[in-house]
Each structure stands twice: as structure tokens, then as C-alpha cells.
Design a protein around this nucleic acid. Structure first.
Lengths: 202, 202
DNA sequence: TAGATTGTTAATCGATTAACAATC
DNA sequence: TAGATTGTTAATCGATTAACAATC
């Protein structure tokens, strides 16, 4: 459920501001969704609120975090130590959401051994061996499109269960492996369409 | 239509490989969609293929590019000259898809005047003035969450029609302004859910 | 002509939302 | 008790897909 993550982001902010209770109506307004949808989304995972009162922000935050498994630290592997990889590792919101990039890999001889922030860039061919110790479940692909499918194969070899793919390709993956694509150039193309035409959306 | 952009990416690759014709069935298989959906998506914009033959790759590429308005160079403004902003400007696939970042802004006195690749970082308070000359229609927000809404307001002031937002907040925008969010930490949270549970998806 | 594949209609499916009895 | 708001059912809406006549 992608929306749960949106809710969590906003709830964390509320919690930091000391808000104790919130109604589905207000949550919906703040995150741009529908109140019934918010309640429905939660209902898949149990009961969270109190009729007539609303939701306890602190408790709801905890419970959604537990559902998304971001209540404890999550280890993540990064493949691709270029500009994008660097920006990812240095992104402050990662730690805030309990994600921890534990290793960075590349295939470039000139990069291997160097530092990416506080990580030593390792040889992609050691991926499997390294993850035998680290046991990360999530991998990030931040390499050029041509190499992405190959890197995905290496990640699967290393027992990765989920892949966040920044390369603009549709990965072929076996069933049971979760994947999400982040392709901001594609998003720009969509915006380009809406910015030009009279067709207005969202 | 987000899927048109996916099609375009793959079609460009086909064209580069010299493929002349492709059927909806094959397009669908390669991009992980349904053949009927592919044909339906196109049908909103006219007729593109020939029964019994398929689609001319070269022509289809051109026409989709025209629909998405990426057939000519698109000017884009960037606000936020941090690590993320730097990775965006330096991203090679941007030029390939005809996007051109024409100006970079920040509010940090230490950054203003410095270079971000080949761009000089400008003062955010000059945004409106600068864009009066550049006339960009699309803006990218790559600033911390706290500042995002404020930056969005400045972009609107400068006559931007579409916003690509990397900050993890739901922007409040007037109708008629297109926006897309790129929030990879949120994507990680979703993956965290699927990687852990037996619930398998996509 | 026979085989392939389109564009489009109609059927299916799932997701969104409105409405409301139950509850604080 | 009266007002508010939940969880959930039922109704609506839109998106996906199967099927097929039209066409190369």
C-alpha cells in the first residue's frame, strides 16, 4: 500500500508537532485523499481509531510503521556509485525513516576502494559474498539503463527480495520479487504533456 | 498519460537498434503491460498502426514524442542546489529526452554564485525575474520538506505550469497546475512492506 | 486468399466514495 | 443525551482486458 507510506510521513510530522489526535477527515484533507479511503486503507490491517474521537497520532504512527516494517532499522544495498548513488546515500530523510545503506557497489575500477560518504565502494562481483554477512533484503539500482538488468540478476543472486530501480528500463524479475521504479525523466515527460496542453490534471 | 512515457522510452531504444516495425503484443510484453491497453492508450490520440502489420517504430516514436511535447527542447528550472539537485543536473538521460535545465536556484548565500556543473547557482529571490527571460514552464523542487511549499509558491509566481517535487510533502497547489512527486524513501517503505510479508506484488 | 494485427466495443474487474449503523 | 467520528457495507465510478469486425 503506497498510501500508507504517505500517511506515515504526515503522521510523523504531526507527532513531532505534538498533535495527539486526528480525524480521518483532517488526515484526508492534509494528504489530498478521501476520508473514506483513509479509513478503508487502515481497515485492512485492523482497527485503529475510536468513533467520535478520531485516531491517536502516536499510536497510529507506531502501528503503520510496524505494518510497513520501518519500525526497526532496514538494511539496504546500493549498486552504482555515481552522482545519483551519492545523492541517495547522502539523503537525510533516509535515516529519518529508518533506512540504512550498509554497502555500496560499482564495477568501475577507478571507484572501487574509494569512499562514498562513509561507505567504501566495493566491487560488484563481491555483492553476493558481502551480503551473506549483511543479509540486506532491499537493493537499490542506480546504474545506467544498459547495466540495470544485469545488476538485478546479481542482486537476486545475493538473496535480495525487493528492488528500487532508478534506471529507465522495465526489469524482468521472477514472481515473488517486489520492484518499484523511480524514473524522474519519465515524470518530467508526463508534466511536459500537462504543462503544454489545456488538459489539466491533479 | 504516464504509460505513454514508458512506451516512448522503449521505442527510442528500438529505434536505436534499427527495428522498423513492432506489434502491440510485443510492445506489451517488453514493457510489462497488456496489448489491448497499449492500443487503447494510443487510440485516445488517433490511429497509429496498420492492421496485420503493426506499428512503424520510427513514426510512432515521433508521434508520441509530439504528444508528450518532448519533440522539441523543454526548458526546466531547478530549485535546490544540494546533492540531489546536483545529481539531477548531471543526469545523462535528461538530455536524451530533450529536457534542458536552464537555471539553478538556492537560498544559501554560500552556494549562490558558485557553479553547479555548468550552471551558475542563482538567488532564489531572483526566480521570477530570471524566468521572465527564460520562460520555462516546468520547475523542479529539490529542497528540504520544510521549504518545499514556499518554493512552490515562488515557482507559481514565476509562471511555472508544472512542478516535479522531490520533497516528501503534499504540495497545496491551485487547479490548473500539474504536479508529480518523486519520493524514493516512500518507495523504499513500500518495498520494505513487500520484502518482509508473504504478500507478493508486482 | 489466408494469416496477422489493428482500433474499438462490450464485459470484467477493482478501486473509490457515499452512506450509515455502531460507538465513544 | 447530543455531537462527532469510526469501521464497513453498498453504490459508483473508472480502468483493464477480452473479443471481434475491419483491414492490411
Amino acid at each position: 500500500m503506497e498510501r500508507l507510506a504517505t500517511y506515515l510521513t504526515y503522521l510523523s510530522k504531526l507527532e513531532a508537532h505534538g498533535v495527539e489526535t486526528i480525524s480521518s477527515a483532517e488526515m484526508a484533507a492534509r494528504t489530498g485523499m478521501n476520508a473514506a479511503q483513509f479509513r478503508k486503507d487502515l481497515s485492512h490491517f485492523g482497527e485503529f481509531g475510536r468513533p467520535g474521537i478520531g485516531y491517536n497520532v502516536r499510536e497510529l504512527t507506531r502501528r503503520i510503521a510496524r505494518i510497513l516494517k520501518v519500525d526497526c532499522e532496514q538494511c539496504v544495498l546500493l549498486v552504482g556509485a555515481g552522482n545519483l548513488g551519492s545523492a541517495i546515500v547522502g539523503y537525510p530523510a533516509l535515516k529519518a525513516q529508518n533506512f540504512h545503506i550498509v554497502a555500496a557497489f560499482d564495477n568501475d575500477r577507478n571507484k572501487i576502494g574509494r569512499k562514498l560518504w562513509d561507505l567504501r565502494i566495493q566491487d560488484i562481483s563481491d555483492l553476493k559474498k558481502v551480503n551473506r554477512k549483511l543479509n540486506a533484503r532491499i537493493g537499490i539500482i542506480a546504474v545506467p539503463a544498459e547495466a540495470a538488468q544485469q545488476v538485478a540478476a546479481a542482486l537476486l543472486e545475493a538473496d535480495i527480495r525487493a528492488i528500487l530501480n532508478f534506471a529507465p528500463v522495465t526489469l524482468k524479475l521472477p514472481p515473488g520479487i517486489a520492484a518499484r521504479n523511480v524514473d524522474f525523466v519519465q515524470e518530467l515527460a508526463v508534466l511536459s504533456f500537462y504543462a503544454a496542453g489545456e488538459a489539466t490534471r491533479e
